[in-house]
Amino acid sequence: MLKIENLHASIAGKEILKGLSLEVKAGEVHAIMGPNGAGKSTLGNVLAGRPGYEVTAGTVTFNGINLLELEPEARAAAGVFLAFQYPVEIPGVNNTYFLRAALNAQRKARGEKELDSMQFLKVVRGKVKAMGMKPDLLNRAVNEGFSGGEKKRNEVFQMALLEPRLAILDETDSGLDIDALKQVAEGVNALRSPERTFLVITHYQRLLDYIVPDYVHVLADGRIAESGDAQLARELEAHGYAWVREHVAPGVEA
């Protein structure tokens, strides 16, 4: 469903991704690991279409369409969801309002009927309950005054509501204590299905104890240096990224 071929991308003229290729099938969970600066977050941002990231070569096909041609909102409507590493606060924009605008925009783009406010409230309240979120979430402004953990959980909550086909989790574990990590992982696991694919970007193996991936890829210097199964993540944990440098990608700065 997602095919990345020879992807080169740069930001402010500096090349970060240097020929990354990756193929992901529906229902799979792929973990992307790697040292700081390897290009992990850049990959997530390029897939979501963040302005400022320039793709200089390569292709990304998503269910047969050229993802790179689409505006960010069109990618979202096509089913791409990025759970941000640093979700922004949007003072003055109420969560309910925001989520309904997002859901309806996506439904409209897909030619589905938009939900009126009653229908929407029913759906969103159900999700709040299912995901164990506090009901007052809906009355608060988007991410405003949320703790780090709350923000990350809110990302997963949005994912549950918007039901993407490709969910990219960008260091969703960073800054979380173990309880919050478990909650986030439970949320993600609840959303796993044969139609939904996950790219889990993380620096640490910790998260992968709870979200067990089908494949693990090690990113180094803008390319995939090594691929394997969940065992690879455990080896990384045991040996550190220096091990990657020595064993799989000599010459790469960790």
Partner: peptide, 16 residues
């Protein structure tokens, strides 16, 4: 810009 992108990444068109 970051906030705009956040909204767009959730499927909300730029103008909206």
């Amino acid at each position: 810009e970051h906030v705009l992108f956040y909204l767009r990444s959730r499927g909300i068109p730029l103008e909206q």
